[in-house]
Amino acid sequence: MPFRLNGPPYVIDNPQMPGLAVELVSRAFATQGYTLQLTIKPWNRALKEAQYGRDQIVLAAWYSEQRTQNLAFSKPYLFSDIHLFARRGYPAHYTSLNDFKGQRIGLVQNYAYDSSLMTHPELTLLPAETLLINLRKLQNGRIDLLAGERRVALWTMHANHIEPGSLIPLEPELSRTPVHIMVGKNNPKAGLYLDVFEKGMEAIRDNGEYAAIMTKYESYSTP
Rank of each mutant, 00 (worst) to 15 (best):
M17L: 15
T35C: 08
T68P: 04
G33C: 12
P2E: 12
E129L: 15
A112N: 03
N207M: 09
S116C: 07
R150N: 08
P42Q: 09
W62T: 02
V22N: 05
G89V: 10
T177A: 09
Q37P: 03
M182K: 05
I181E: 00
T156G: 05
V183W: 04
H158E: 15
K75E: 15
D81K: 10
T35P: 02
S221K: 06
A60V: 08
A147F: 04
I162R: 01
E198R: 13
E173N: 04
L145E: 03
Y10K: 11
E65H: 07
L138G: 04
P8Y: 02
V25D: 00
I105W: 02
I57E: 01
R151S: 06
G106N: 08
G200V: 01
A92S: 05
P2A: 14
D81L: 13
T95D: 10
V11N: 05
G7R: 15
G184C: 10
L170H: 04
K199P: 03
T39V: 14
V11E: 11
R150T: 05
Y90E: 01
H161P: 04
E23G: 08
P121C: 12
H120Y: 09
E202I: 12
F73I: 07
T130A: 07
E149Y: 07
K199Q: 15
P127Y: 04
G53Q: 12
Q32G: 12
N6R: 06
L5F: 06
V22Y: 10
W43P: 00
P164V: 12
N187R: 12
L125R: 06
H180G: 01
K189M: 14
S96N: 14
K185E: 04
L84W: 00
R54I: 09
R150I: 03
P15M: 08
N160V: 07
I181D: 00
R87D: 05
P76Y: 13
L126Q: 09
R136E: 10
I168M: 08
Y193L: 14
L47G: 02
L24R: 02
Y210M: 11
P223E: 10
H83G: 03
A190Q: 15
A153V: 14
L145V: 11
D81T: 09
N44D: 11
Y94A: 11
G102Y: 13
L107V: 09
R54F: 11
D114V: 06
E198M: 10
Q69H: 13
Y111R: 14
L125C: 07
G200M: 05
D99I: 06
A60D: 05
R151V: 04
Q109I: 09
L131S: 00
A61F: 01
M17E: 14
Y90D: 02
E209Q: 14
I181A: 03
Q56T: 05
L194M: 13
Y113E: 10
E65Q: 15
Y220R: 13
I162V: 04
G191T: 11
E65I: 08
M201G: 00
L84R: 00
T156L: 13
E163N: 10
M214C: 11
P223I: 03
V108M: 06
L126Y: 05
P121G: 11
G19E: 02
V25M: 00
P164K: 13
E202A: 15
L138F: 05
Y217W: 03
K216P: 04
R150L: 09
